[in-house]
């Protein structure tokens, strides 16, 4: 999810792409210090850039100033592991978990379970197609309220 057009500066675009490239390579989000080092900028500059990138909610920050969400990736482990080849990432929710193979245009196996009873419901994407159609997705919060209640969304 990310709604709300905002013009990005060149630095913000560089920072955004640095974060995604790091994530794809290392299977985890970079810390502020790593972004500063990688882009030869101060941590203060990086934090300011992350704050701007967070305005669309595509990026979200933890209380300690490190990344929490780089849509569709979660920077912390969740119940939505996504395996692409030998790589492992985590989605923030089932939509984001599906978003990882969608973004990468790769085959994937998503670990998922029924949120009610924890019944195992793995999902496989192969050649751009879902290999199962079992199950349904519930979004608890209306679209215009998504970022007011991220946890239940």
């Amino acid at each position: 999810m990310a709604i709300g057009t905002k013009t990005s500066s060149t630095f913000d675009q560089q920072l955004r792409l640095f974060v995604y490239r790091y994530l794809l390579r290392h299977e985890k989000c970079p810390r502020v210090a790593e972004m500063a080092k990688g882009l030869a900028r101060s941590a203060k500059n990086v934090r300011a850039g992350l704050a701007r990138l967070s305005e669309s909610h595509a990026f979200m920050m933890q209380e300690d100033g490190e990344l929490w969400r780089v849509a569709p990736f979660s920077c912390i482990p969740t119940g939505f592991p996504v395996r692409v080849g030998r790589k492992l990432w985590f989605g923030n929710c089932i939509w984001d978990a599906l978003g990882i193979p969608a973004m990468l245009a790769k085959d994937a196996r998503i670990g998922a379970a029924c949120a009610c009873c924890n019944y195992d419901m793995p999902i496989e994407i192969r050649n751009g197609k879902l290999q199962t159609t079992r199950g349904l997705i519930h979004i608890a919060v209306a679209a215009r309220e998504w970022y007011k209640d991220v946890v239940f969304t």
């Binding site: 792409l17 569709p72 599906l98 969608a102 245009a105 159609t133």
Partner: peptide
């Protein structure tokens, strides 16, 4: 809230995240 099928979710993910890089 709102519900959608897994197939709709996959299509939504493709439309939403396909250009993210």
């Amino acid at each position: 809230g709102g519900t959608l099928s897994l197939a709709q979710g996959w299509k939504l993910a493709q439309l939403w995240y396909g250009d993210r890089l």
